[in-house]
Design a binder for these strands. Structure first.
Length: 255
DNA sequence: GCGACAG
DNA sequence: ATCTTGTCGC
């Protein structure tokens, strides 16, 4: 897969101001409506009740690190059948800076996508999409670069505020994340994602919710519904879990 | 100055 | 993200 919008590639050599300016442009180029009609049956993991051939190809993307190198792993599956796995390792040029994650990890991610020969219908990233200071988190940025429907799944909240207390919620619960003053290109109060309880025990320990947000070509409610369909009994969506495991394997070999 | 901050 | 033992429970 080659970048469809190379002008938006996350270049780590840019100045901080240039990075932020690019993020505004990325957000303007992003589409947060439902361009694709993902219906429940089509995305579900177990295909017993659906037409397996019609279910979309979903790519999970995850990163791991070795010293100053980044590993990006992509696992593409249709239902529970893995179709392709690719990875790339590149030097990391800049440190982790909240809000600029795509410029740190974009190198290995783009390199991995360029090795991908299939054409996924949906990209699932570990990190935020619209839940970001300029609504241009990792999932938004790379979704726009490759012009693919994408969702961001984060384990903690970067910015914005949930409409309700998120503690100890039952499985399936969701609450909107509303933009606050830190989201520079949104009105305060705009829904930019969801807190979503993908798994919960009857007793302790209490599991924290996921923070799901649209990357590109997906709406806030659809992003969360897609993630709920991809969580096969675990906290994280299955594509993310598989990419995570693959990234660990790759990491062990480059060591 | 203070607080907050994906991976 | 990463560094790590033991521990609880199905």
């Amino acid at each position: 897969m080659d970048p469809v919008r190379p002008e938006f590639l996350p270049d780590p050599a840019l100045s901080r101001d240039e990075m932020e300016a690019l993020q505004y442009d990325v957000a303007d180029a992003a589409d947060w409506s439902d361009a694709f009609d993902f219906d429940a049956q089509e995305v579900s993991l177990d295909g017993e009740a659906s037409l397996s051939g019609d279910r979309p190809l979903v790519a999970g993307v995850d990163q791991a690190f070795l010293d100053d190198r980044g590993v990006s792993a992509i696992v593409v599956a249709r239902g529970d059948t893995v179709v392709e796995r690719v990875h790339a390792v590149t030097d990391l040029e800049i440190p982790y800076i909240p809000g600029l994650l795509s410029f740190r990890e974009g190198g290995p991610i783009v390199a991995a996508f360029e090795k991908l020969s299939c054409d996924p219908d949906l990209l699932v990233f570990d990190g935020s999409g619209r839940i970001h200071f300029r609504q241009a988190g990792l999932a938004t940025h790379l979704g726009v670069v490759f012009d693919k429907p994408s969702v961001g799944v984060a384990k903690s909240l970067l910015c914005g505020h949930p409409t309700e207390d998120v503690d100890g919620r039952p499985e399936g619960w969701r609450a909107e994340i509303l933009a606050d003053d830190s989201v520079e290109n949104a009105d305060s109060g705009d829904p930019i994602g969801h807190a979503f309880q993908s798994r919960q025990y009857d007793t302790e320990p209490i599991i924290n919710p996921l923070y799901v947000s649209p990357g590109h070509r997906v709406s806030v409610p659809t992003a969360t519904t897609l993630v709920s369909q991809l969580c096969g009994g675990y906290k994280l969506p299955e594509p993310t879990r598989q990419a995570d495991a693959y990234a660990d394997d790759v990491k062990a070999e480059y060591r």
